[in-house]
Nucleic acid binder design. Structure first.
Length: 313
DNA sequence: GATTCGTGGTG
DNA sequence: TCACCAAGAAT
């Protein structure tokens, strides 16, 4: 692995990455885990009774949605569908309705699909294997690693937006990570991963919590940071972000806004909804039609034969 | 790899 | 006010 003289050129290593490998220093995870033990939030999906299914529900809901908005919906879901088979037995439209205003309602559909797959392929138990998790609808690299780590205590690099920011600052010395996750980031996360399984799982949760509570995107609180003294970004004088502007997300007037308005009508209705009720949410007919077609194509809306629409049955 | 996909809080 | 941000995934 480290033989430098033979075969092809060695993989390029940044100085920051080399520093992360230095063996003599206290490993980065030690002070971060200690901080976590004293400062972790008491979140319901961290309780043992949440189980792997509770962890999975929380991870779906937390994809791009803040904790404060997830909390009440999470409690409702777990109470209503305490096991994957309970959700799998429901119509997908009920998942979409119960999703409420969390946003990105395709996640509700995918979570329902994951429950069906778990029921059919895994005997109703959330699989423990990373590859099997990854094969579930709506589960990507991050969520598979998160469930395997948080629910089953396995050793995986859990690279979410919080961890990426912590590593960008503490190790690489820049304010923000790249827009898309790079191979260098994955290498770095792998290099920092503690050997021992339980320690690795705690590091995953701890580094994520540090990014969520202290090493935040704006108004970071370095005075509360357990690794401020060795933070490369802070040592460099906290230089501003230089790369390409972080892509903003305009919303007003987009198809997404129209889709949201259409789906809100369908969520609020008991049964099928007439075309006229949907037409009322947006006056521009071309965009309105495109948005509705998109919802139907995504399986979020079901057109009926009589010109009515409803959540998928 | 760049886009698309909701919603609401915040500085 | 409004741009930014929030435990990403799929295409």
């Amino acid at each position: 692995m480290t033989a430098p003289t033979k075969n092809g050129p060695p993989a390029p290593r940044s100085t920051a990455e080399q520093a992360a490998h230095s063996a003599d220093a206290v490993p980065l995870h030690t002070p971060v885990i200690a901080w976590f033990e004293a400062n972790a939030r008491d979140l319901p999906w961290r309780h043992p009774e949440a189980g792997a299914w509770g962890v999975m529900i929380s991870e779906f809901m937390l994809q791009q949605t803040p904790v404060s908005r997830v909390l009440p919906v999470y409690e409702q879901w777990l109470a209503r569908w305490p096991r994957p088979a309970d959700l799998a037995a429901e119509a997908p439209g009920e998942a979409v309705r119960a999703w409420g205003r969390l946003g990105y309602p395709r996640r509700a559909l995918r979570l329902h699909g994951a429950a069906v797959a778990i029921t059919e392929r895994h005997g109703g138990e959330v699989p423990t294997d990373h590859a099997e998790l990854l094969a579930l609808p709506g589960v990507g690299e991050y969520t598979a690693a998160a469930v395997a780590s948080f629910a089953f205590g396995q050793r995986h690099a859990v690279l979410d937006t919080n961890v990426r920011r912590v590593l960008a600052r503490a190790v690489t010395g820049v304010r923000y990570p790249p827009n898309a996750t790079t191979a260098a980031e994955r290498r770095l996360a792998a290099a920092l991963l503690p050997e021992e399984e339980g320690t690795a799982a705690r590091w995953a949760a701890a580094s994520m919590e540090l990014g969520a509570l202290v090493c935040t995107a704006r108004n970071e609180s370095c005075h509360r940071c357990p690794i401020a003294a060795r933070c490369a970004w802070r040592q460099a004088g906290k230089p501003e972000h230089d790369g390409p502007p972080r892509r903003g997300q305009t919303y007003a007037g987009t198809d997404r806004q129209v889709r949201g308005k259409l789906l809100a009508v369908l969520r609020a209705a008991e049964g099928p909804v007439a075309q006229a009720a949907l037409d009322a949410v947006w006056d521009e007919p071309v965009q309105r039609g495109r948005a509705l077609d998109g919802l139907v194509a995504d399986g979020l809306v079901e057109p009926l034969e009589d010109g009515m629409y409803r959540l998928p049955g």
